[in-house]
Design a protein around this nucleic acid. Structure first.
Length: 654
DNA sequence: AGCACGCCGACT
DNA sequence: GTCGGCGTGCTC
């Protein structure tokens, strides 16, 4: 009977601590149980990862205070995954494990959108040849991963579900990952019906105790399929057969706090070590996934070309805003009028992101770009400089727009409020509602607006990113993208990819229930590749030229980026610390292959009275960048009051 | 991450 | 003389 245990704690130190098991507690203090332990004059929740019969110690070993769980919450496989995560994402094992276990640190995701989904679950339809071929290929499992690539409405969900059913019939289990926003009550109900209750729903709105209950059902073998967002990738199935990753391109698969894991990477790892198959799907794959598909080694590419339920693609028009007086162009005004006359609805989409922290021309939207990285420069008010956050290039902001000679250049921009005002002025009798992050803060507000819109009580819905996802409303005939450029100008090498993806996703949805679907893209740069390829629905064309650009500029997938963010109350101290670390890592950068690209203030240099500086490391070979940072971090602890966060494969540098 | 210990400045 | 700044080290 073991008398000692090794315990991991949710601390940024990567060590375990030894505790003694009090008499009579031996049965319950096993691997997989959470325990309460005394630790440096306080109590903490710990995770038992090992049991020991005897230990040699030069210190006095303390006793476990109490055991939390009656039955194990995790197994050696889970612990191994946490170990991998700590190595891969450069965090401690305790941080990784406590992030995986419910009741641990909360997963701070956005509250779920109460919209309904249109995945045609439950309805048994005849499969198309393409779908049948995809299912057959997946079930052969000749490759460890498959990518189901096809437009919205091509029946990806049905392929996923049939594959899941087949795997479950083999006695194995399935994890079905969806972006947070698509996991709705209706979707949950449909999946539950289809798999006759043997389903666990891991929703972010669940309380820790509800989440724990679902975990225990999974462990107890009462469940064949778990559906959920990002963190559902940790669902503790002992006999995992399949992981489905729907809408693979979605950024919400990447965690926003330490460890900043990506559900796709974790899923890959789990499938690899547990002998399961990974099936991903999207109409607009991430460039990383696309590159893997082209290689055709580990990822098998399955293309769904046709829409299952018919429905034509919408007519897409591009309007050049340069020749327009108003923010809402004559063409868009005309289309809105037509739509309203037909008693149909319109959605106006505005990508507001980024306008506040970069400098641009208010007349034509012109933006200063980095000559080395081809990304927009970020305006720093304090130093009156334009800075590239990938290579550190600096220059003075412009006084006159070089494109249109306008003097109206500054760092302010227009937001949803401004557009709303204009729309109200143009259509005084229309019923208009706004849906964005500000209005989403009020609880229940989002659901109310969406319901009203669905019930036809609103004519024009105005919104940001939020409306782009769940916008399947039968009465919508018109989608207007008020300013496609606002996404193109953000200082990010993925700006083109995101814009293209968004345009394709939005267009794909507009024609879903309706043969009259129309999409109007307003832009100052109609010649932009993202817009042009989206207009022609040329997905492959966009990816090949974008991959070429990434190759030339040395960005992912042709390199690995690691962003190290230092933050703290005291600006001087944080700055000093970055410089100190920069010198330290520079010294290790000897045989090349990986280098420090840039170390400077963050694009948003102060958040919640915390000063932020970052250091960006890049490696042509992923492992070289990883090794360099791991080595630099191995014998380093930041000064007091300075906190370091590691972001491996960052999606944005804010 | 916390929390105590310890060594230097300005205060009832 | 003490209160309190934050630099350093440790936690089984």
């Amino acid at each position: 009977m073991p008398k000692f245990v090794e315990v991991l704690l949710d601390l940024p130190i990567d060590r375990s601590f030894t505790y003694q098991i009090p008499d009579g507690m031996e049965e319950k203090a096993r691997i997989g149980h959470r325990v309460v332990v005394p630790f440096a004059r306080r109590e903490m929740t710990g995770y038992v990862v090992e049991t020991l019969d005897e230990v040699e110690a030069t210190y006095t070993i303390k006793e476990i205070k109490r055991v939390i769980d009656d039955t194990p919450l995790y197994n050696t496989q889970t612990i191994a995954l946490a170990e991998w995560m700590s190595r891969f994402y450069l965090c401690s094992r305790g941080e990784a494990l406590s992030m995986m276990i419910p009741g641990g640190r909360r997963d701070s995701s956005i509250p779920a959108l109460e919209s309904e989904e249109d995945l045609l679950f439950g309805r048994v339809e005849r499969l198309s040849d393409e779908q049948q071929h995809a299912i057959d290929t997946i079930l052969k499992r000749e490759k460890p991963m498959y990518y189901l690539y096809g437009i919205t409405g091509s029946g990806k969900s049905e392929v996923f579900l049939r594959a899941a059913e087949a795997i479950i019939r083999e006695g194995k289990t399935v994890i079905y990952l969806v972006p947070e926003i698509t996991l709705t009550h209706q979707l949950a109900r449909q999946v539950t019906n289809r798999f006759s209750q043997r389903v666990a729903i891991l929703h972010s709105a669940l309380t820790p105790s509800q989440r724990l209950k679902e975990w225990k059902r999974i462990i107890a073998g009462e469940v064949d399929l778990a559906i959920g967002a990002r963190s559902a990738v940790f669902a503790p199935f002992p006999n995992l057969g399949l992981i489905i990753l729907d809408e693979e391109h979605e950024n919400s698969y990447k965690s926003g706090n330490t460890p900043r894991y990506h559900a796709r990477q974790v899923a890959q790892r789990r499938c690899q070590s547990e002998g399961a198959t990974l099936v991903m799907g999207s109409a607009t794959p991430s460039l990383e996934a696309w590159a893997l598909m082209q290689e055709n080694k580990e990822v098998g590419s399955l293309h769904l070309r046709n829409r299952v339920s018919g429905g034509t693609m919408p007519v897409i028009e591009v309007v050049n805003l340069s020749y327009e007086k108003n923010l809402i162009s004559k063409t868009l005004q005309e289309r809105i009028k037509e739509t309203l006359n037909k008693k149909k609805q319109a959605i106006l989409f505005l990508n507001r992101r980024g306008f506040s922290y970069f400098f641009h021309c208010n007349s034509c939207g012109y933006e200063l770009r980095c000559p080395h990285c081809a990304v927009a420069l970020t305006y720093h008010k304090g130093t009156e400089q334009m800075v590239c956050h990938y290579c550190g290039y600096r220059t003075k902001p412009m006084r006159v727009c070089p494109e249109c000679n306008s003097l109206d250049v500054n760092y302010s921009g227009f937001g949803t409020e401004m557009v709303e005002e204009e729309v109200r002025r143009l259509f005084p009798s229309a019923r208009i509602a706004r849906l964005d992050t500000d209005s989403a803060k009020k609880k229940g507000q989002v659901g109310k607006v969406i319901k009203a819109f669905r019930d036809g009580e609103i004519d024009i819905l105005l919104g940001t990113q939020m409306v782009a996802k769940g916008l399947n409303f039968p009465l919508v005939e018109l989608v207007g993208i008020v300013l496609a450029d606002s996404g193109l100008n953000i200082p990010d090498f993925r700006a083109q990819e995101r814009t293209f993806s968004l345009l394709v996703q939005v267009s794909g949805r507009a024609g879903r229930y309706n043969d009259q679907g129309r999409v109007i893209i307003q832009t100052y740069h109609p010649e932009n590749p993202a817009i042009q390829y989206a207009l022609r629905s040329d997905v492959q064309g966009f990816y090949s030229q974008e991959l070429e650009i990434r190759k030339q500029t040395g960005f992912p997938p042709y390199s690995r980026l690691i962003n190290l963010v230092f933050r703290g109350r005291n600006q001087q101290k944080v700055e000093q610390e970055v410089q100190k670390f920069s010198a330290h890592i520079e010294q290790l950068t000897v045989n090349g292959g990986a280098e420090v690209l840039c170390s400077s203030e963050c694009p948003l240099e102060k958040i919640a009275s915390n000063w932020r500086y970052h250091l960006l490391v890049s490696g042509v070979q992923a492992s070289l960048a990883h090794h360099l940072v791991a080595k630099a971090l191995s014998d380093y602890t930041p000064a007091r009051g300075v906190y370091l966060e590691v972001d491996l494969d960052p999606l944005q540098l804010i």
